[in-house]
Amino acid sequence: MTGTAQMTSVFAPSPVVAGTEGVIVFAPALTTDRLETDDERLAAAISGGDEAALEEAYGRWSGPVFAFLSRRMADRSTAEDVLQQVFIEVWQKADRFDAGRGTLQSWIFAIANSRSLDVLRKRVPSPVDPVDDGFSDSVDGEGIDEMEEFMASWNFARLVDGLPEEEAELLRMRFNDDLSQTEISRRTGVPLGTVKSRMVSGLTKLRTEMEASR
């Protein structure tokens, strides 16, 4: 991936989860249509008892969901317990996933939001409802904003991962490691002017993605 045009074909915005209009959620995917088709295929396979599909879903989303849970729970072992509960529900409720209401990633995050709040608030887990599709499985939308922000952050960080590595590395050093441009230049040996131009190049591509997702 070497340019904006190619990035656009690789990253597409995910549908916005109902009730969270206005929140931009960036999702790596081939196209929106492909994303939905892929989500539906995976959900259907899981609901049909396909363990390989469950493993595929776990491989894709256990990372971001565990990152979210680790941040919210501030305790790794509790986050691990909740993560397992989340994927038990994914296994049991995949037939309720509705691609018209959001991505599979959003759906799994919504479950994670509810289960983590159950633990934090020490409340009774939300009832199993014959018509509940999981997206609304949260008391009064509690925690949704934080969950959506994290999901957007996660997906935006993956956009950075998709940039040319020499640009991505500089942006990570600047915004994750909190290094100044001068420190980055000194550590990498890249002239300061080049550091700036590469960062501008990466930022311009990210900005293009943000505009495309609106």
Binding site: S62, A67, L171
Partner: peptide
Amino acid sequence: MLRSIPREAWKAPLPPRLDL
């Protein structure tokens, strides 16, 4: 947007293996 990304989203802690 980059400034708002929390550390866990930049580099995620490794999740446990799936206990299928």
